[in-house]
Each structure stands twice: as C-alpha cells, then as structure tokens.
C-alpha cells in the first residue's frame, strides 16, 4: 500500500526477514485468487502489532482487505471475520511477541475450534518494533535490551506448543526462500482448519540469525535449518513429534490432520439443526 500513500513512513530495516515473508504472502494470495478465480478483495490480512504486522501496509500490487488491530489479537479478530464470512480467505500475520507472548491465550481456543484461518508467524526471537527486548523464543541467558543480566526463562518451542494444542496444520520455514515459503502458506490457506506457518524471519538490527539459519562453511557454522525429508508422513503425529524433537529449524510441512471438521463447518451444522424463528415469533414467546 506504500505505493498508494507517500505518507506511510514505516520501512523495514535493510535485510529484514519480513521482506521475504511479504513476497511469499503476495505469491500465495495470487495463487489463491488464480485457483479460485476470486478477486484480491476476497483476501483479508489481519495483522498483529510489531514490525511484522506492518506487513499489511507494505503489500505491493493489488490490495487485499487489511485489519491492523491491537497487540496480540490478530487471531480473535480473524475469528470474527471468518465466522462472519466463511467464504473469505483469512490470513493473520504476527510476530513471536504478538502471537506467542501477549496473544498466546488465543492459540489454544482456535486450535480447539479448528478455525479455518492461516496464521503466518514471523519469529525473530525478539521484540523488534519496541527495539530489542526479549521475546518468548529468545534463548535462555541471552542479553537483550530488557534482560541486561541474561534472560532467565527457557525459550518456548512454538512447534511443540502448536502440536500439543491440536493445531491441525503446522509448517515451519524461514524467510530466505519466498517461493518455497509461498507454497507452505498456500497449502495452509487450502487446509480446511487452523494452520500455522511458523517462519524464522530474522531481525537484522537486533537479532540477525541469517548466518545461523543458512550456515557458513567458511566459518564452520552448520545451518540450523534443514529440509524435512520427502518420506515424512505429516498425518502421523508421532513422526511430526520426532521432526520437532530433532531440533533446529525444519523446513516443510510437519503436521497435517485433515480429519477434523473446521469451526465454520460446525457452525453450518448448527444452522442445519436449529430452527430459525423470525422476530415476531420470538416476541410472541413472551406474550401475556
């Protein structure tokens, strides 16, 4: 949207991982529109607050609808959009602080409901927008702006959390290869239930992990990112857990359960079963 409005004054720092995520989301929405012959206006991007959430203002080209709400609440806003208009393609974009910190209370309920929304998480293990504080995924002992003597908590493992909470589509990736990431996001959009695409999206200013993710032979740094082998069966929970337990940053679809009905399918079922009365009839129930 920056093209539309010269006033918009936020830009990501040079090299920020979020550039790649933006590109990937643009590809995925484009592919969605092509496949279903829908206009861009059928896509709704609900954004959290953070450098990551600002993505909604930085999308280029044909514009989807956007909702840039308040910190931590991208999921319940998306819940409202989706349950109001199930035919829309609803995507959320949020950072690790937004999604796993202040907004963590919303993941479990949406997993339990199997809300048909695709959440794209940009994990940089730091609060970028507020200039470098520790986040839920920051390593233990890390010295940051807000942990001058080292972070005391152990970091949470988001992938393990998602699996435990019952998220029915879990993919993990990094922002280095937008085309590959786009496939995972598109797949997540296609998934008839709650999908999370957890993306390592490095913060080049406060926590640059590009080198660690990709590795550096010369320096003898092994990459933490590794590609999930083709023979992995994402419908197998035990295999999914094994992938997560291998550590590092797996690239690909970890888990996919297509057997559970989505929340909107459940709502449709209620609409079928419940008898719908007009206002006059409802009023008459109280007649004297």
């Amino acid at each position: 949207m920056s093209a539309n409005n010269p006033e918009y004054d936020f830009t990501w720092c040079p090299g920020c991982g979020d550039f790649g995520v933006r590109r990937a989301l643009e590809f995925a929405m484009g592919e969605w529109n092509a496949k279903y012959e829908t206009p861009m206006a059928n896509n709704v991007v609900v954004a959290g607050i953070g450098c990551s959430g600002n993505l909604v203002h930085l999308l280029e080209g044909d514009q989807p609808y956007g909702f840039h709400g308040i910190h931590g609440r991208s999921l319940p806003i998306a819940l409202g959009v989706k349950m109001a208009r199930p035919e829309l393609n609803v995507v959320t974009v949020a950072g690790d602080g937004d999604f796993l910190g202040i907004g963590a209370e919303h993941i479990g309920p949406q997993a339990a409901r199997n809300l048909n929304v695709c959440a794209v998480i940009m994990d940089n293990s730091v609060y970028g927008l507020t200039k470098g504080q520790a986040s839920p995924t920051t390593a233990q002992g890390a010295v940051t702006n807000s942990t001058p003597y080292g972070k005391l908590e152990t970091p949470i493992d988001p992938l393990e959390l998602y699996l435990t909470l019952g998220v029915t589509y879990i993919a993990s990736s990094y922002s280095v290869k937008p085309r590959d990431l786009a496939k995972l996001i598109f797949d997540g959009m296609e998934h008839p239930g709650f999908s999370i695409v957890h993306v390592q999206s490095p913060c080049t200013t406060y926590n640059d992990t590009f080198e660690v993710l990709k590795g550096n032979k010369k320096k003898g740094i092994d990459p933490t990112a590794w590609t999930i082998p083709d023979d992995h069966d994402p419908s197998d929970r035990a295999q999914a857990r094994a992938i997560i337990e291998q550590g590092g940053v797996p690239l690909g679809v970890i888990y996919k359960d297509e057997t559970r009905a989505s929340f909107d399918a459940g709502a449709d079922d209620i609409r079928e079963r419940a008898s719908h009365k007009d206002v006059a009839t409802l009023l008459a129930a109280y007649d004297l």
Partner: peptide
C-alpha cells in the same frame, strides 16, 4: 471484504486510506 474499495481498518492513527501515519 469481497467488494470494491479494499482498505485497512487500522487501530493506529491513519490516513484516508487506512495506512498508519
């Protein structure tokens, strides 16, 4: 959503389009 006039509903102060300013 779905119709013409896509914009961003924004909780940050915004311009005519809905982008942060």
């Amino acid at each position: 959503p779905g119709g013409p006039g896509a914009y961003t509903a924004n909780g940050s102060e915004h311009d005519s389009y809905g982008d942060t300013t």
